[in-house]
Measured scan of single mutants.
Amino acid sequence: MSRVPSPPPPAEMSSGPVAESWCYTQIKVVKFSYMWTINNFSFCREEMGEVIKSSTFSSGANDKLKWCLRVNPKGLDEESKDYLSLYLLLVSCPKSEVRAKFKFSILNAKGEETKAMESQRAYRFVQGKDWGFKKFIRRDFLLDEANGLLPDDKLTLFCEVSVVQDSVNISGQNTMNMVKVPECRLADELGGLWENSRFTDCCLCVAGQEFQAHKAILAARSPVFSAMFEHEMEESKKNRVEINDVEPEVFKEMMCFIYTGKAPNLDKMADDLLAAADKYALERLKVMCEDALCSNLSVENAAEILILADLHSADQLKTQAVDFINYHASDVLETSGWKSMVVSHPHLVAEAYRSLASAQCPFLGPPRKRLKQS
C-alpha cells in the first residue's frame, strides 16, 4: 500500500486566492494483479454453464480479502454459449462490502496482453458476489490457432484489481511565511564533478583513453575500487588504474551511474553493462540491467540471455529466462542460440529441462510459493 502523499503547497495549487485553511483528501486504492494459466484448455468440458475456478489470491499475505477468477468455457447461458465468460469473485471478506475495479486480458504466445476488457467503474462486491463479462471473447476466435491465444493449448488470463480503501483527510492552515525547501541536487552536482573533471585525484585508463576521477567517490560506490585504493596496490601508489576489459562507451555509462545513480543509455548496452556491474560489484546497476534484459526477452535471444545471466550470477534474470524458455519451449528449441547452448553450456540445458519437467508435473513435489530491489 502506498504512503499517503503530503498535500501540495497551496501557493502551487492555483494562481488564484489562497485560503486560510485547507483539506486534502486521499482515497486510498490498493492495486494488484494475478495470472492464471489453464493447461490443455481444449479438453475443458463443453457443457453450457460449466465452471472452472482459479485458486484464491489477494494483494498480499496480510490481506484478508480473498478473490478468485471464474471461467465458463462455453458461456454462462444460452445467450453467451458462443463466448467464454469471465468473472472476478470475492471469496471471503471481513467487511460487509468492498468496491473494486478490474481489468481482464489474455496473454498471447509472446506474453503480450490482448483482448483487454475492464470495468468502467468500481463495482460493489459482497462475499460470494462476482462481476465480469458474460461475453468476454468469442470461442471461435479464441480457438483459432492463427490468433495465437492458446500457445501449446494453454489459456493464460491476466487480471488487474484495484480495491478502494478508506479515504484519509489531511488538513492544515496557511501561513504568510511559507518556506520552500529546494530539491536535493546531489546527483546532478556529483555528475558535474565527473563531467568537468574537477578536483580529480586519479586516472582511469580504458582502451587508450584516459578519464579523470575521484578516488573517494569510486571507493564509496564500488567495493572493488575501494579494495584497489585501500591496500598497497599499484593503483593506490600511482593513482592510476588500467581497465582492459570494458569498452570506453560502456565504461562511461558505468561511471555515470557511479556518480549519479542513473544510467540513461542502459537499454542500448544492458548486456555489456551487466558484465561491468558484476565485475565492479555495483549491485543496483546489475539489477537494473537484469530488468532491462528481462523486458527484451524473446524467442530468438532467450538462450543467449540465459548464458549471460549464468555467467554473471544474475539470479533474477536467470529465473526469468528459464521461465520464458519453459513457456515458449517449442519455439526456443528451434533457435540457433539454443542449439549452440546445447554444445557450449549443457548444464544450462539440463537446468531448463528440470524446470520444465517440474512445471508440467506438479505432483512430483509440493507447490512452490512464489514470493528486491534495493
Score class of each variant (00 low, 15 high):
Asn244Asp: 04
Pro9His: 05
Ser295Asp: 15
Leu274Phe: 09
Glu112Pro: 14
Thr114Lys: 01
Pro73Asn: 03
Cys93His: 14
Glu210His: 14
Lys101Ala: 10
Leu142His: 12
Thr37Gly: 02
Val299Arg: 10
Ser55Gly: 11
Lys238Asn: 06
Ser21Ile: 03
Asp245Gln: 05
Arg124Met: 03
Pro5Lys: 02
Val163Ser: 09
Ser21Glu: 03
Leu317Cys: 09
Val287Ile: 02
Cys159Asn: 01
Ser167Met: 03
Ala303Glu: 01
Pro248Asn: 08
Gln316Asp: 02
Val224Thr: 15
Asp144Met: 10
Asn40Thr: 08
Ala329Lys: 07
Ser340Leu: 04
Leu155Asn: 08
His231Ser: 14
Phe251Gln: 00
Gly208Gln: 12
Val343Pro: 10
Val98Gly: 11
Asn39Met: 08
Ile307His: 10
Ala146Ile: 09
Val51Ser: 07
Phe125Glu: 01
Ile38Glu: 00
Cys361Phe: 10
Ser358His: 03
Asp144Trp: 04
Pro366Trp: 12
Asp166Lys: 13
Leu218Asp: 00
Leu143Asp: 07
Ala109Gly: 04
His328Asn: 04
Arg354Asp: 06
Ser33Val: 08
Met269Val: 05
Gly172Lys: 03
Lys95Cys: 12
Cys159His: 10
Ser171Glu: 09
Glu253Met: 10
Ser21Trp: 14
Ser197Asp: 15
Tyr259Trp: 01
Met176Cys: 03
Glu253Arg: 06
Leu371Asp: 07
Ala116Phe: 06
Tyr280Gln: 01
Ser313Pro: 03
Val71Gly: 14
Asp153Trp: 08
Asn147Phe: 14
Ser105Thr: 07
Leu218Lys: 00
Ser85Arg: 03
Asn62Glu: 05
Pro7Leu: 05
Lys31Thr: 14
Lys369Arg: 01
Arg354Ala: 09
Ser374Leu: 15
Lys81Leu: 09
Lys369Thr: 03
Glu97Asp: 13
Ala352Ile: 07
Leu193Glu: 10
Cys205Phe: 12
Gln120Cys: 13
Arg138His: 09
Asn296Ser: 04
Leu65Lys: 11
Pro182Met: 02
Leu297Asp: 00
Asp245Cys: 08
Ala122Ile: 13
Asn196Ala: 03
Val299Met: 06
Ser236Ile: 04
Val4Cys: 12
Val181His: 04
Lys81His: 14
Leu149Gly: 09
Phe229Cys: 14
Thr37Glu: 05
Ser171Ile: 03
Pro9Ile: 10
Arg139Leu: 10
Glu47Thr: 09
Lys110Asp: 15
Ser21His: 10
Glu304Met: 02
Lys286Arg: 03
Ser14Met: 02
Leu76Lys: 07
Asn39Lys: 04
Arg221His: 12
Glu160Arg: 04
Ala292Met: 04
Tyr24His: 09
Leu107Met: 14
